[in-house]
Simulated scan of single mutants.
Amino acid sequence: MGPLEERMILSGMHTVADIFCCCCGDNVGWKYESEHEKDQKYKEDKFVLER
């Protein structure tokens, strides 16, 4: 995982960390670390894999 950063996503501001492939090192998505909005708390500690 990469360093934590604040990122604006469609659903608002989130604290996320990029995740990388352990074989090739490519960025494959991100992990939600913490949420600023109460209605977005369900996303904490979840991963998003991009195609």
Results as ranks from 00 to 15, higher is better:
1 M>R: 10
1 M>S: 10
1 M>D: 06
2 G>L: 11
2 G>S: 08
2 G>D: 06
2 G>Y: 08
3 P>S: 14
3 P>D: 12
4 L>Y: 13
4 L>G: 13
4 L>F: 13
5 E>M: 10
5 E>Y: 08
5 E>I: 12
5 E>V: 09
6 E>T: 07
8 M>F: 12
9 I>L: 05
9 I>F: 01
9 I>C: 00
9 I>V: 09
10 L>I: 14
10 L>V: 14
10 L>S: 14
10 L>D: 15
11 S>R: 04
11 S>C: 11
12 G>R: 00
12 G>H: 03
12 G>I: 00
13 M>K: 08
13 M>H: 04
13 M>R: 12
14 H>V: 07
14 H>I: 06
15 T>E: 12
15 T>W: 08
15 T>I: 13
16 V>G: 12
16 V>N: 02
17 A>G: 02
17 A>P: 03
17 A>E: 08
17 A>R: 09
18 D>K: 12
18 D>G: 06
18 D>W: 04
19 I>K: 02
19 I>Q: 02
19 I>T: 00
19 I>P: 03
20 F>D: 00
20 F>Y: 05
20 F>N: 04
20 F>S: 03
21 C>H: 01
21 C>P: 03
21 C>G: 09
21 C>Y: 05
22 C>W: 13
22 C>F: 14
22 C>H: 15
22 C>T: 14
23 C>P: 15
23 C>Q: 14
23 C>N: 15
23 C>V: 15
25 G>M: 09
25 G>P: 08
25 G>N: 07
25 G>E: 10
25 G>S: 06
26 D>P: 13
26 D>K: 13
27 N>Q: 10
27 N>G: 05
27 N>S: 13
28 V>N: 00
28 V>K: 00
29 G>H: 00
29 G>M: 05
29 G>E: 03
30 W>R: 07
30 W>T: 10
31 K>M: 11
31 K>H: 07
32 Y>M: 01
32 Y>E: 00
33 E>L: 13
33 E>N: 13
33 E>R: 10
33 E>W: 13
34 S>A: 08
34 S>F: 04
34 S>E: 01
35 E>G: 08
35 E>H: 08
35 E>A: 00
36 H>N: 07
36 H>S: 07
36 H>F: 08
36 H>Q: 13
38 K>I: 14
39 D>W: 11
39 D>M: 13
40 Q>C: 05
40 Q>H: 02
41 K>H: 12
41 K>G: 04
41 K>T: 11
42 Y>D: 02
42 Y>W: 04
42 Y>R: 06
42 Y>F: 10
43 K>A: 06
43 K>S: 04
43 K>Q: 08
43 K>D: 03
43 K>L: 03
44 E>G: 02
44 E>D: 05
44 E>P: 00
45 D>C: 11
45 D>N: 05
45 D>R: 04
46 K>H: 05
46 K>T: 04
46 K>N: 10
47 F>A: 02
47 F>V: 02
47 F>H: 03
47 F>P: 04
48 V>R: 03
49 L>S: 05
49 L>Y: 06
49 L>E: 01
49 L>N: 03
49 L>A: 11
50 E>P: 04
50 E>Q: 11
50 E>D: 10
50 E>A: 07
51 R>V: 06
